[in-house]
Nucleic acid binder design. Structure first.
Length: 423
RNA sequence: GGAGAGGUGGCCGAGCGGCUGAAGGCAACGGUUUGCUAAACCGUCGUACGGGUAAAAACCCGUACCCCGGGUUCGAAUCCCGGCCUCUCCGCCA
């Protein structure tokens, strides 16, 4: 959520921001409701002042005076009810609109329509040239008995899969490696609940908007998270932290669930777009300071790059353009990893910073040394998501004989083996 | 699932329908003392919104807020109803 005062002062900034991000929200309507609401509230306040004043006199008045005062109070009460009705009508409209207003993007963000207009910032690693006919991850996974999509679909429908044998081990290895890496960087490891109340979904900015993308336990009014970002970011929601607690750095490994509604027919092959996967996620809850936020953003991006470099996977970093930004994001860097079967880079990481956007929604604040209460800044990024990252690992580490070399960094997690071979 | 208890400020915890924005304690902040730290003592110390003076810091006035929403009342933290949440005991289960 953004600050209504800032909208009042500079509505154009928010109009432009919404348009660039391709969100449809009527700032003029919002401001009109805001000013009416403000006006009604002021009237109500004046009226209440008068009511309170009169009420306090009552016990001290003589009988006739008292009756007179009571009569006036009665009239004031009818007026008060009218004003209250007006507020009850407008306040929900105001609140709903406020949840819709996007955070304006940083000036660093390139203007663009969609992900094709994201701007590449840098590349790392050499893209492997094959001197034999390479297989894609499904072919490899089937031949080596690592992946079973057919039975996943039989039991759970499309976009489901089993990982099996070394496939299951490789999946665990890459996640554990990433988690250990982050712990060593000083991030606090967390095991988090995956069924979240609507409040947490709203607080992180997923609701309203991502309801269709979310599996929901209707009976219990709980939502299966699409990322550990939700529990980690909302962990301190509603709290007043002290400045010494910041920055709070968390890392969690969790399963993630996504309905992929609206993606029908897209990326239907393989393990790229699936309903359930596991992810190690990093979250920073920081001070209300843009320079610090930007530094943290670089930090979480560097963490993910370090993991990819340790795995020796070629990737590029893109500066995500305005049209591809979420409602709350100020700026987002995606890490895209080379995937031979896609003949291109596929998104494997997404590093976002939000400034106060999420913290405002969840009332996440801290007290400064100067004893001022400020909203925190929040950021998050993928550390590793699997099985998506198994795509480049399997495909890039494959050998002409059909075996797959285990990346050096993962060998300690795979009983120090060097290769995955057909049994 | 059955029975009961409870939700008050950063935290703990009192609270008679008007004198309570809320006792007391802890924490925090400022100061005195002290070679330093600690202790002791004195003082300050909720949030949001609106209005006023102001460049700002700050200050003043008002309103709201003691889980949420309704109600009773001239007046509600306090009484009534509904909801949400937490805890304890029993049962069941991992």
């Amino acid at each position: 959520m953004v600050d209504i005062k800032q909208i009042r002062e500079n509505p154009q900034l928010f109009k432009d921001g919404a348009r660039a991000k391709k969100f449809d929200v009527n700032i003029d309507d919002l401001l009109a409701i805001d000013s009416t609401l403000l006006n009604v509230k002021k009237k109500l306040q004046d009226l209440t002042t008068e009511k309170n004043r009169l009420g306090k006199e009552i016990p001290r008045l003589a009988e006739t005076e008292k009756q007179k005062a009571l009569k006036i109070l009665g009239e004031l009460k009818t007026l008060e009810a009218e004003l209250n009705d007006k507020i009850k009508e407008l306040q929900p409209q105001f609140d709903a609109l406020m949840l819709e207003v996007p955070q304006p993007p940083s000036p660093e963000v390139p203007f663009g329509e969609d992900d094709t207009q994201n701007v590449e910032l840098r590349r790392w690693g050499a893209i492997r040239q094959f001197d034999f006919e390479y297989k894609d991850h499904i072919q490899l996974g089937t031949a080596l008995n690592l992946i079973d999509v057919e039975r996943g679909v039989k039991l759970a429908g499309t976009r489901n899969y089993f990982l099996k044998g070394d496939g299951a081990l490789l999946h665990r290895a890459v996640l554990q490696f990433a988690l250990d890496f982050m712990i060593q960087k000083g991030y606090t490891p967390m095991v988090v609940p995956l069924l979240m109340r609507d409040e947490a979904m709203r607080g992180t900015g997923y609701y309203p908007g991502a309801e269709e993308q979310t599996y929901r336990m209707e009976r219990d009014e709980l939502n299966l998270v699409g990322t550990a970002e939700v529990p980690l970011t909302a962990y301190h929601s509603g709290e007043l932290l002290t400045e010494e607690m910041l920055p709070a750095k968390f890392v969690a490994m969790s399963s993630c669930f996504r309905r992929e509604a609206g993606a029908a027919g897209k990326d239907t092959y393989g393990l790229y777009r699936i309903h359930q996967f596991d992810k190690v996620e990093q979250v920073i809850i920081g001070e209300n300071d843009e320079a610090k936020s930007i530094a943290y953003h670089q930090e979480i991006l560097a963490n993910s790059e370090a993991v990819m470099q340790a795995l020796n996977l070629p990737y590029r970093v893109v500066n995500v353009c305005t049209g591809d930004l979420g409602r709350g994001q100020v700026q987002k860097f995606d890490v895209e990893t080379w995937m031979p079967s896609r003949k291109g880079f596929g998104e494997t990481h997404s590093a976002s910073r939000f400034y106060e956007f999420q913290a405002r929604r969840m009332n996440l604040r801290y007290k400064t040394a100067g004893r001022q209460n400020l909203f925190c800044h929040t950021l998050n990024n993928t550390v590793i998501a699997s099985p998506r990252v198994l795509i480049p690992i399997l495909e890039l580490y494959q050998n002409a004989d059909g075996s797959v070399t285990i990346p050096q960094a993962l060998r300690p997690y795979m009983n120090n083996r060097e290769k995955i071979e057909a049994q």
